[in-house]
Write a protein that binds this DNA or RNA. Structure first.
Lengths: 244, 244
DNA sequence: GCGCGGAAAATGTCAGACAATTAAATGTAT
DNA sequence: ATACATTTAATTGTCTGACATTTTCCGCGC
């Protein structure tokens, strides 16, 4: 008997849910092999295509990986930081772009979290992270740089700052906040003057981190946050005026 | 011609990627209808089951929703905060449980981020959030409460604190950090004494937030973080000794 | 004008087949 | 006996065609 929760259809979703639950609450462990598609099909009393749809759902969430051939099959996959980053960033970006989130809200969230990392980054920064930050600052001074490239470099700079805090869980959580801002930032038209100002802030932040000066790092980040906010508000205002 | 990137197979993954890209970078907008499965099949030169596998992948990421019947089909879905929360929490939980993240690392990340919210929560808290916090504190004093329920209540308390900052983006980002800690927290056995201490901290935090005292809220959270850390370390030590 | 029923379009599901891939088992030559 | 080549079996990947189900629309009769 199998009078499951959901009254109506979408068998593949139900099957995916059952397997997902088994993985999430530890009844299946990493690298454990799932039954073959044929076995799952008879186990759940559905056809193989339906089972496959369920497995693809799980694969899309990086919960399983599949291997062809004899002794192949579907295996519970160890979720790597890289993949988790990727999913988190995709979700965050979509969330912001699809829900008309105000620039101020996103900006506040991002800098609030980033400032929380600054003291730890100042305390623990490695030469490597510092070098990345300096390299990105240098790139940001190149004259021919497109707005998109400038923003990408900006993201890399801030990622390096967060990574300098040397806590992978923190890096993962902040990846979404920092990266998801990029599309919003791209909407701001950077004048030569504002780029110069931003690079100035970046330099001050890097200096503070290099000097292991937690307080200065926080102060400079706060200043950058305030400046970014004014930039964004100006851009929004101009856009609003144009579209009237 | 279609000599796409990936040399080898998994057509459904390629197709899913193409559609996902179209959605993520705005070539398809919310509520826009995708071609029917049959049309997609002929467009990509694959069979309908393959197209369906691709669509299920996208559905698993909440990128599309499907509707049966005439004029039904697959539509680009507006990613809601609730669904984004859910995905974020699932991913975060798995990331921690599958990668042997040290308790200290997760704990540090969580409280670092949460403390960043405290000042904002103190400034903006609504009576509603305050009431939730008080209610959970009360629940935590109930004698018969199981460890799991205590932890769940703990999560709800902290979520209310974060939500009090009144920034949905911030709430979303922190959902992962706070909720994903629960399984780790469940591993700590709470004695009656430590529950009492935790409830004490919670009360102090709620008091500080009620008084709109940002500094006190931060201080109390810091103290709770330190206490949680020692609890966790004790538990880990005991476990290590037992398994020797 | 209003309800009712069928047509049409779409997804959901199934069954069976074949192709492709991979590791183990088997066979063969040195 | 060992190393190498070949077969074999298991499993996923893909295709074809069919039927079931759901939903909207349109026309028909009243």
């Amino acid at each position: 008997m199998k009078t499951d929760s959901k009254i109506t259809s979408d068998l593949s979703a139900q099957i995916a849910k059952e397997i997902r639950d088994a993985i999430v609450d530890g009844r299946m462990i990493v690298d454990e092999r799932l039954p073959s598609e044929a076995e799952l099909a008879s186990e759940f009393n559905v056809s193989r295509p339906t089972v496959r749809e369920a497995l693809k759902r799980l694969a899309a969430q990086s919960l399983i990986r599949t291997q062809r051939g004899a002794f192949g099959g579907a295996f519970v996959k160890r979720l790597s930081y890289e993949e988790a980053y990727g999913q988190h960033i995709t979700t965050s970006t979509l969330l912001l772009s699809m829900n008309a989130v105000r620039f101020e809200t996103a900006c506040e969230a991002r800098y609030t979290l980033e400032r929380a990392c600054a003291p730890m980054a100042a305390a623990r920064r490695s030469p490597d992270h510092l070098a990345t930050m300096r390299a990105e600052i240098h790139r940001q001074t190149q004259p021919g740089l497109s707005d998109e490239s400038f923003c990408a470099s900006d993201v890399t700079f801030h990622r390096a700052l967060v990574d300098a805090a040397d806590n992978p869980v923190l890096s993962y959580q902040l990846a979404g906040a920092v990266e998801a801002m990029q599309p919003l930032m791209n909407m701001i038209t950077f004048t030569e003057r504002s780029r110069e100002t931003i690079v100035g802030f970046h330099t001050e932040i890097a200096d503070a981190v290099e000097a292991r000066d937690a307080e200065a790092a926080d102060t400079k980040l706060e200043a950058l946050a305030a400046y970014t906010l004014t930039l964004g508000q100006d851009a929004m205002e101009k856009r609003a005026r144009r579209s009237e």
